[in-house]
């Protein structure tokens, strides 16, 4: 947005940006896909000036379906992806950290939350912890401001933004609100290389002890139902809901009265703040 105007005073300096990509999961079909946030992170890296981008994937890449997803990342215009092959259900962080140390990256970009597995969002924090670097969450733009300093635009809820400044090296996770990633070109994805690297894998013991099931629908909370002490209160609580629902239609009121009703709803929903 506004960051480009403040561009680097020292544009010649080259940065190494490492982007971590994972195999995502489509929220509707559950099929492997290019992870939305990871590809946005890669897009962000590709749009930085004076950078060399390294893309790293750690995971079980033996499955052809998962490989085709990595090829989708390659199709964004990459020559290769470093693949550190990990067994299924292993903790990828040690392998990633080892790889990043070898690379001597200045900036590490990741998605905020994996689309498959636990999706806790821990990976960037653990990497930052292991490397002793600062970790900046929810980035939507990263710009080199010169002299090793970077300006990061951070996504706040409701489309608001905050400007942060941080010195390289650092880790940043990219928010879903970042710019859409570029299209993947099938043919260049097929031409790119998946360069396998052997780094030992560490089994994830916690994940082996949990039970994973398809998501259940969360029950909707019925307002004040619990508070009711008597059957009548419970009845009232259960029936009150339908009474408040259903669209009110205002026809005959004056324009001012109509505006007042809309205004009240807007205030009650908190989208405009009444100053008093």
């Amino acid at each position: 947005m506004m960051l480009h105007s403040k561009l680097s005073s020292n544009p010649a300096k080259n940065y190494t940006v490492a982007t971590l990509v994972s195999v995502g999961k489509h929220p509707k079909s559950g099929r492997p896909r290019r992870s939305d946030q990871d590809s946005k992170a890669l897009e962000l890296a590709l749009n930085m000036d004076n950078r060399s981008v390294h893309v790293i994937h750690a995971g079980d890449s033996s499955d052809p379906l998962r490989q085709s997803v990595l090829r989708e990342y390659l199709g964004m215009g990459l020559e290769r992806i470093d693949v550190t092959r990990q067994n299924a259900n292993s903790d990828a962080v040690p392998a990633l950290v080892e790889r990043l140390k070898m690379l001597q990256a200045d900036v590490v970009l990741t998605g905020s939350r994996a689309e498959s597995g636990e999706g806790s969002g821990m990976v960037p924090y653990l990497i930052a912890q292991a490397l002793g670097w600062p970790m900046v969450p929810a980035a939507v733009e990263v710009t080199a401001a010169g002299d090793g300093e970077f300006e990061i635009l951070q996504a706040l809820p409701r489309g608001q933004r905050r400007l942060l400044k941080v010195r390289a090296p650092f880790v940043a996770s990219v928010d879903s609100a970042a710019a859409e990633s570029r299209q993947t070109a099938w043919a260049s994805g097929q031409r790119g290389q998946l360069q396998e690297m052997a780094i030992g894998s560490n089994p994830d013991e916690v994940m082996s002890q949990v039970t994973v099931e398809p998501a259940r629908k969360r029950p909707k909370r019925i307002a004040s139902a619990k508070k009711a002490k008597t059957a009548a209160d419970r009845f009232k609580a259960a029936t009150a809901k339908s009474a408040s629902k259903g669209g009110a239609i205002l026809v005959k009121e004056s324009a001012e009265e109509k505006a007042q009703v809309i205004y009240d709803l807007l205030v009650s929903q908190g989208v405009i703040n009444k100053k008093k």
Binding site: H26, R33, E72, R182, Q183, T184, A185, W186, A187, S188
Partner: peptide
Amino acid sequence: LTLEQGSTPGKGSETLQNLIATD
């Protein structure tokens, strides 16, 4: 343009991604 350059305009990219991931 689509297979080599990945420059399908409009909602083309999104549509193709959907076709791949959800048929």
